[in-house]
Amino acid sequence: MDGFLKIAPDIPHIAAGAWITLTLTAVAMTIGIVSGLVLVFVRSSRIPILSQAAVGWIEFFLLTPPLIHIIWAYYVLPIVTGWRLDAITVCAIALSASVGAHMAEVFRAGLQSIPKTQHRAAEVLGLSVIDKYRFIILPQTLRVILAPSTNVLVSLLKDTSLAAVIGLGEILHRAEVAASSNFLFLEILTFVAVLYAALNYPLIVLARKLEERSRQGFVSV
């Protein structure tokens, strides 16, 4: 118990890293959602090159770990291109790319879950393509994707800790720095785990609520 009292002076500094964690999460989620939308749109293109490029991009970021992208962009990119990006930019780009690929999959699954008969019913009433999506397809898709999107958000918040490897001062990096000077690794890392859990808990609760609602909201017949 002693150790936990001894880390008290480090807590404010580590907890303040949550701002960077949350900012990075917000930025990557926003860019990820937008790029996910663009990717599904391009993927459904009738021009084969475009749709194949989108598929390739999505698969690459689904199949490879974001840690590799961060390290690659931070250490390798400057050698190859001569550009040096600062740590937070590198993390924002790498995590956005990963979130974009995951969100593209969420959107695609959501759109595909709407039965073809809903499209036909809308078309036969004479609705334009835009109106069909705006009033019939997208509102139903939104309900379906809310829960999986929140899950992506929860993973993202945890993945921001990868930024520690390139020395970005978010929660984990600050914790590592503190621990390496007072050697209270167990206590400090336990505190960090609790902090992540506290940040994520409301999101998990939200995801469960949304899932519940989309299950009982309506059964599509």
């Binding site: 019939i136 909201g217 309506f218 059964v219 017949v221």
Partner: peptide, 14 residues
């Protein structure tokens, strides 16, 4: 002006 009704109703559930 061509109305159609399907076997599976296809009302908009939302």
């Amino acid at each position: 002006e061509i109305g159609m009704v399907f076997q599976s109703f296809n009302l908009f559930p939302h």
